[in-house]
């Protein structure tokens, strides 16, 4: 059967992934945290300029300006309703913005559906409630998008899916259904599912908020491991330990605005604005 490898969607092959994966194997999470600068390049992965969004009359995001370099790991925090989830949901157009521009990987997000699909192929997203497809097995969850969007042959997609399931430490669950897994396992599958599309950017929308305390750790470990591969990551989370360990930058948002952004150490030890200080005093005990 003739395949069509020439389609534009397959331009990033798995070969590009492999050196990064080796690096991850060599270094565990802690080592990575000590040498974050190594993996950041000058290339811009995400550029958000003068971006505004309204829900009807309500101004959710106000004049957002943010530039993310390739390989950077950014943690976004802030009180609930501050617009942090909305911000990252704008980055793969799950939400539409009304003013300003968002450029992802050199592609500007507009109403052009082709452009949107192109961005979504390159940007993985992990949700608070996992959003696995309950009618498909873990393996099918992971291979669906590579097969139907990347037009990858099934055997190759399964091979890649298996390697990522091993990476998130649940290869033995491959033929179960999501309903048979614990929350932590489901979230790890969700991460593996996103990685199977070989994304260049990963967005995490409160990935541990819906988990029982004993399962948070296993998910964070996977995320730390992923950070070690040089993946560009934007993470909305309240896990300050994670932010300290892997983030290059922490962004604090309130009332739809970016109030403060800084390196993690500075951010936690020496917050600038009163709003940030108040927030930190409330979440750090």
């Amino acid at each position: 059967m003739a395949r069509e490898p020439k389609t534009s969607t397959t331009r990033k092959t798995t070969a590009a992934k492999k050196p990064a994966a080796k690096k991850a194997a060599a270094a565990n999470g802690d080592d990575v945290a000590k040498q974050p600068a190594l993996t950041i390049s000058d290339e811009v992965a995400i550029e958000v300029a003068g971006m505004n969004k309204w829900y009807g009359e309500f101004h959710v995001l106000r004049d957002i300006n943010l530039t993310v370099q390739r390989g950077e790991r950014i943690v976004i925090c802030g009180p609930s309703g501050s617009g942090k989830s909305t911000l990252i949901r704008c980055m793969n157009r799950l939400e539409e913005h009304q003013a300003g521009k968002i450029v992802i990987d050199g592609i500007e997000l507009t109403n052009d559906i082709k452009k949107i699909d192109e961005v979504r192929r390159e940007v993985g997203m992990v949700f608070q409630h996992f959003n696995l497809f309950p009618h498909l097995t873990i393996m099918e969850n992971c291979t669906l998008a590579p097969i139907w969007v990347r037009k990858m042959p099934k055997s190759e997609a399964e091979e890649i899916a298996m390697s990522f399931l091993e990476r998130v430490k649940i290869p033995e669950q491959a033929h179960k259904y999501p309903g048979q897994l614990s929350g932590g396992q489901q979230q790890r599958v969700a991460i593996a599912r996103s990685l199977c599309m070989n994304p260049r950017i990963m967005l995490f929308d409160e990935p541990t908020s819906a988990l029982d305390p004993e399962m948070i750790k296993e998910v964070l470990e996977v995320m730390v491991d992923l950070a070690g591969t040089g993946m560009t990551m934007l993470c909305v989370t309240h896990e300050m330990g994670f932010a300290r360990q892997v983030a290059n930058r922490v962004i604090f948002m309130d009332e739809g605005q970016i109030i403060e952004e800084n390196e993690p150490e500075e951010f936690f030890l020496n917050p600038q604005s009163d709003r940030t200080k108040l927030f930190l005093s409330q979440i750090l005990h």
Partner: peptide, 10 residues
């Protein structure tokens, strides 16, 4: 479910 499908580029 709709969002997850969208986010995967389907």
């Amino acid at each position: 479910q709709y969002e997850a499908a969208d986010a995967l580029g389907l």
